[in-house]
Amino acid sequence: MSRETVINWALALGLLAVPFLALMQGEPFYITLATRVAILALAGVGLNLALGLGGMVSFGHAAFFGLGGYAAGILATHAFNQEPLFAWPFMVSGSNDMLLIWLVAIVLSAVVAFLIGLIALRTSGVYFIMITLAFAQMIYYFAISWPAYGGEDGLSIYVRNGFPELNTLDPIQFFLICYVVLMACLFISARLRDSRFGAALQVARQNPERLAATGIAPFNIRLVAFVISAAMTGLAGALFADLNRFVSPSMLSWHVSGEIMIFVILGGVGRLFGPLAGAALFIVMEFYLGGITEHWQFFLGIILLCVVLFVRGGILGILAGRRVHG
């Protein structure tokens, strides 16, 4: 087993242990915190696929995070009010079944990512960063000014959505749902990375001409990766809405795009478990610094800056050492 594998296992088991320790200590709040880490890590796992593997620096993943959140919020609201979502051309009603909501969140994010990708992937470098940002801003302003679902005030989910056979209101059970989803997506990421598709994606990043010479269009490979990446982040958004029992346009803001990116970079770009390590560290810092000083953002900034400047390769870079392959 390589050092990175050991650390990955430690991270996975460590996250799993937190809520149970919290329960033993009678501190249920830490379960919520661990759930938050799991969900935000999932958003990062999604971005990591585009960013780490495909080299696509998306500064607009908040769009998918927010869309996933709104999918959950809107369906739940309609279910709560017992109003159909739309009655024509066929009847679609709301739902508070998590599985269905996840599916909608995934499909919605994927479709939007496909459309954005069609345009954005024609560009590269800074242009790509900025055009993804622009699309996210478009959706953000749309959400703020669209009155039907609360606009800037957002949308409350009065009863957390349900999962067959489980009580999602129980923090531990909800944590476990999020944890399993996170692990499943990590597993999918790992399989994708080691598949022929993953190999093609990495070649598309490093040497697109070579890939084109083999008859595979780099554009298509990137587009597929971008869509999968967005779908995972969208799924995280749906879970995040359920965690907070609330969605609002702030999930779509460019700060969120920046934060998701921070999780990935903090943990180590392209590392499978990087987003988990990064999200965990970020949340813990936000939580403790916020309790110590009202100027916590100042210190958070300094810490982040030091990480970028002096710790190349993120947390997993320090712990697991440099990667063998390039």
Binding site: E27, F29, Y30, T32, L33, R36, F240, F246, S250, E286
Partner: peptide, 17 residues
């Protein structure tokens, strides 16, 4: 910090912890 999700987290902490 005027962030809804952070406010929710702090509220949970204050209530539960």
């Amino acid at each position: 910090a005027r962030k809804p999700d952070l406010a929710v987290q702090i509220a949970d902490k204050m209530i539960q912890k």
